[in-house]
Computed example of a mutant assay.
Amino acid sequence: MKNKIAFLLLFIGTISYSQNWKTNFNDAKQEAVSQNKPLLLVFSGSDWCAPCIKLDKNIWQSTEFKKYAAEKLVLERADFPKRKQNQLEDQIKKQNQDLAERYNKDGIFPLVVLLDNKGKVLGTTSYKNVSPTEYIELLNSFLK
């Protein structure tokens, strides 16, 4: 019985801090408006970009960032994988290319763009070798 309760608590805790990365920008914008939250747009090369992979592992997957994001942000990932088995649907590829033309003209990977819920850029950054706390502070500085 104790094992079942412990598992249930762990499962509930995992759900409450799971991330909900969107891949449809229009859905993400609508959610940002309805929840009155900023939108974090991340340009990533998930299967080839070493700094992108480090950012995901060290920041996005941290418990601290997951909790922060669940409360404060809408998350959108514009991924540009290179490996054949990781290719995205044509519609998502086109959307991500359009987003890159608008928000990532220099082709920087990773590029982290914080937008208000109307699509205005509040700030940009990239991978930083810092703690999740410091990264969250950087994102918060864009909101002031």
Rank of each mutant, 00 (worst) to 15 (best):
K2S: 13
K2P: 02
N3A: 15
N3T: 11
A6E: 15
F7D: 15
L8M: 14
I12P: 03
I12D: 08
I12M: 14
I12Q: 07
G13Y: 08
T14D: 09
Y17H: 13
N20P: 00
W21H: 06
W21A: 10
K22E: 07
K22V: 00
K22P: 03
N24P: 03
N24I: 08
N26T: 11
N26F: 00
D27N: 13
A28N: 06
A28P: 02
Q30P: 02
Q30Y: 03
Q30V: 10
E31F: 04
A32W: 00
Q35M: 13
Q35P: 03
L41G: 01
L41K: 02
L41V: 07
L41A: 06
F43P: 00
S46I: 07
W48L: 12
W48D: 05
A50D: 11
A50P: 09
A50W: 06
P51E: 08
L55D: 05
L55M: 15
Q61S: 15
T63E: 15
E64Y: 00
F65V: 09
K66S: 14
Y68A: 09
Y68G: 03
Y68K: 09
Y68L: 03
A70N: 15
K72Y: 08
K72R: 11
K72H: 15
L75C: 08
E76H: 13
A78S: 03
D79V: 06
D79K: 01
F80T: 05
R83L: 15
K84H: 10
K84P: 02
K84C: 07
Q85P: 00
N86W: 02
Q87E: 11
L88G: 01
D90C: 07
D90S: 14
Q91C: 02
Q91K: 12
K93W: 01
K94A: 14
N96F: 04
N96A: 08
N96S: 05
Q97C: 04
Q97R: 09
D98Y: 03
L99M: 11
L99Q: 06
A100M: 10
E101I: 07
E101W: 01
E101L: 14
R102T: 15
N104C: 07
N104E: 05
N104S: 04
K105I: 13
K105N: 07
D106A: 15
D106W: 05
P110E: 04
L114S: 02
D116H: 06
N117K: 12
K118Y: 08
G119Q: 01
L122I: 04
L122M: 14
L122K: 05
T124H: 00
T125F: 04
T125H: 00
T125L: 05
S126I: 04
K128D: 09
P132D: 08
E137K: 13
L138I: 09
N140L: 12
N140K: 14
N140S: 14
F142M: 10
L143F: 09
L143I: 13
